[in-house]
Design a protein around this nucleic acid. Structure first.
Lengths: 226, 226
DNA sequence: ATTGGGATATAAGTATCCTCGTGTACGAGT
DNA sequence: ACTCGTACACGAGGATACTTATATCCCAAT
């Protein structure tokens, strides 16, 4: 879009950022389960860095709501119950519906094509771990033209926060089929530039996701104490 | 509610938190102006602590959007232009209207009385610095019963982010008069439990605030480079 | 059984040192 | 006079080693 020298030159990556990325993915993928203690010296040794950048990473993840830090008790992977998931989805509904509403009049056909490709990739993808990312990509592409960076940032943050739970949803073939069908409907409404319909489909999509997830967590025992 | 010894026993306060609070207030009050470099060793010496808790504090403020951290360039007080203020207000409108809508059916008369007291205090208060806090208190009291902690958290964060700019607004007698009149209308609608009206008043209130502020910043030169 | 220490583990905080990217200022070459 | 390159200073990121404070758990004395 903007560059001639393309992307590779960006701002330097700090160790803290890299550590945060690894931890974020580990938490999202379920490698680090809810409630796990994240001890700084342990992580420091494991990653081969000092405590300083590890603390920075943990702070960052705390801001994202993925990790909870209590003074003297340290950092733990945030444990979420059904109520919290419900809250996140309520906020997502609010934010994403608004972003979609704003985006639709401005969205380019190119972006819609990209979104469609993301859907096709989801259908084709066999690696469970990739579905979460593709799902997010699809949604964010639709909101991209909303013109409010802060709104987009919040949406992304809430995707991150719920990611590891969403992946539980996506691992069910049944849910994935239903979800994909809703995605196609949503995309169709976007292509027609029918904002009202698109928003309604999205709202329904998120509410179903929320209900399914809250159920799974409540009686699946995801939130049991160890 | 829960205690016998009241509040003082809560979780221990870390140095980082205290530093963050002081810095947040200094930025909100305008003591630290937009663009100011926040050098860690300087702050460390000034506060009489080491760099570690100062870094933690800066990270936290970064998460709140008050401070921007660039690797190798360090931390600076976030500089906002009219567009960013507009974005914040757009998000506030979205979040706060929803919170109010959810809150109204559940809000207690006691909270409404408290909110009214906050308004009276604003009228009585002579200290400019207190208006911001009272203004926030009033708004948050109305949303308190919305039942979504995360939503409340986001609202508070956005108050923080825009605080130092809102204070510019509030320092104008003209705006304050108008704002208070809108606040009274809003409260009245809440007392009648008229959700639609209350939300409309709030929306209008925020839009006026946004427009006034964006104007003030665009031609007031608040966002000039140093 | 209850209380009241220790002992241990871990987070928080301190102090110092090193490396490296960035900006600036000065001097050489044209 | 203008550009370019180098030298140098500064500050952030990071490493390392040490101290302090706060839990928690276990055991011993009452």
């Amino acid at each position: 879009m903007r560059g001639f020298a393309e992307s590779p030159i960006e701002k330097p990556k700090t160790v803290a950022e890299q550590v945060a990325n690894v931890l974020r993915e580990a938490i999202a993928s379920g490698t680090l389960k809810a409630g796990t203690a994240l001890r700084q010296d342990e992580l420091a040794e494991e990653f081969g860095f000092s405590r300083m950048p590890i603390r920075d990473a943990l702070r960052q993840l705390e801001a994202e709501g993925i990790v909870s830090i209590h003074p003297t008790k340290g950092a733990h992977v945030t444990r979420m119950d059904g109520a919290e998931i419900g809250e996140i989805y309520a906020v997502r509904e609010l934010l994403e519906c608004e972003a979609l509403r704003l985006s639709i009049p401005a969205i380019s056909d190119g972006k819609l094509d990209e979104a469609e490709q993301a859907l096709d990739q989801i259908d084709a993808e066999r690696n469970v771990g990739r579905w979460g990312a593709l799902n997010r990509t699809f949604h964010l592409l639709l909101y991209h033209a909303c013109g409010n960076q802060r709104l987009l940032g919040l949406i992304e943050a809430h995707h991150n926060a719920a990611d590891r739970y969403v992946r539980i949803l996506l691992s069910s073939l049944d849910y994935r089929t239903r979800s994909q069908s809703e995605h196609r409907d949503l995309l169709a409404a976007c292509r027609q530039r029918d904002g009202r319909k698109a928003v309604n489909v999205l709202r329904q999509h998120l509410r179903e996701g929320s209900a399914t997830l809250v159920n799974a967590i409540e009686d699946g025992g995801m939130s049991r104490r160890p």
